[in-house]
């Protein structure tokens, strides 16, 4: 059984991004880039399934310009068996629907039984890709997984909901999106990082896959959020705090 794990190269989670002065986007100059943390969790889960002998092959896939191969090398170093790069010219915007269509084409071509992906990318914060891909494939889906067990030909998935947890059973093939508590991803070892440098990466293009990736949205402007104008008042005691909060009406 083969598992596909799409991985996105994003600004590292520890970076506080800055908006370009002309409002044309985020300043990515010299900014640390990493694998989207949720994709890392998805990949870790896929690797664990393979280590348990329940999965034969884990393929990591990334879409974008040449630089996304860094992320694919990181995936190989973590333990992915194969890497596929769908190459786009630099600075080509791509939205989740186009990503889902590319993944759909790859899944149909290469015959995966499970797609494990992150619940959202921490740059766009959208989370569209997983459910969209499941829709295109007409496969069952589980979003925000915090526990996953593969039993023969179906998955038992515990998912995080707005009010607690929900357990679902999904026949394979299926799409599952990973939440934070599914696992803690491993660090790649130095020897594995070295080995990953020379591993092959299969390069494909949207045209080959017959997918039109023309964006459906146009970004008009990017701006910094309004700043909170106030400077904090220091309080020294409970009485002090309660008095201040009552005075301004925050407490009745």
């Amino acid at each position: 059984m083969k598992v596909l794990v799409p991985v996105k190269r994003v600004v590292d989670y520890s970076v506080r991004v800055r908006v370009k002065a002309d409002g044309s986007g985020i300043d990515l100059n010299g900014v640390k880039m990493s694998m989207n943390p949720f994709d890392e969790i998805a990949l870790e889960e896929a690797i664990r399934l393979r280590e348990k002998g329940q999965v034969d092959d884990v393929t990591a896939l990334s879409i974008g310009p040449r630089t996304v191969q860094d992320t694919l090398r990181a995936a190989l170093a973590m333990g992915a068996d194969k890497a596929v790069h769908i190459e786009l010219p630099a600075d080509t915007p791509i939205d989740s629907l186009a990503v889902a269509k590319l993944l759909d084409a790859i899944v149909r071509e290469d015959g995966y039984s499970l797609v494990l992906l992150g619940k959202q990318a921490i740059d766009t914060d959208l989370g569209g890709t997983g459910p969209m891909l499941a829709g295109l494939l007409r496969w069952p889906q589980a979003s925000f997984a915090s526990e996953l067990t593969l039993i023969d030909t179906h998955l038992r998935v515990v998912t995080e909901t707005d009010s607690g947890l929900r357990t679902l059973e999904l026949p394979l093939p299926a799409v599952v999106s990973a939440d934070l508590r599914l696992n803690t991803p491993r660090y790649a070892s130095l020897p594995n990082i070295m080995k990953a440098r020379s591993r092959p990466i299969t390069v494909r293009t949207p045209a080959e896959l017959g997918v039109d990736v023309t964006p459906r949205l146009r970004q008009r402007a990017v701006s910094p959020p309004p700043a909170r104008a106030k400077t904090a008042i220091r309080v020294e005691s409970a009485a002090d705090l309660v008095r201040s909060l009552r005075a301004e009406g925050a407490l009745k």
Binding site: L97, A100, G128, P131, G135, R216
Partner: peptide, 19 residues
């Protein structure tokens, strides 16, 4: 919500639409 984030993109893709 957690549930709309799960069903709405799926519905959009079924209609060949972004979300």
């Amino acid at each position: 919500s957690a549930s709309s984030r799960s069903y709405l993109p799926r519905a959009a893709a079924l209609c060949d639409r972004m979300v």
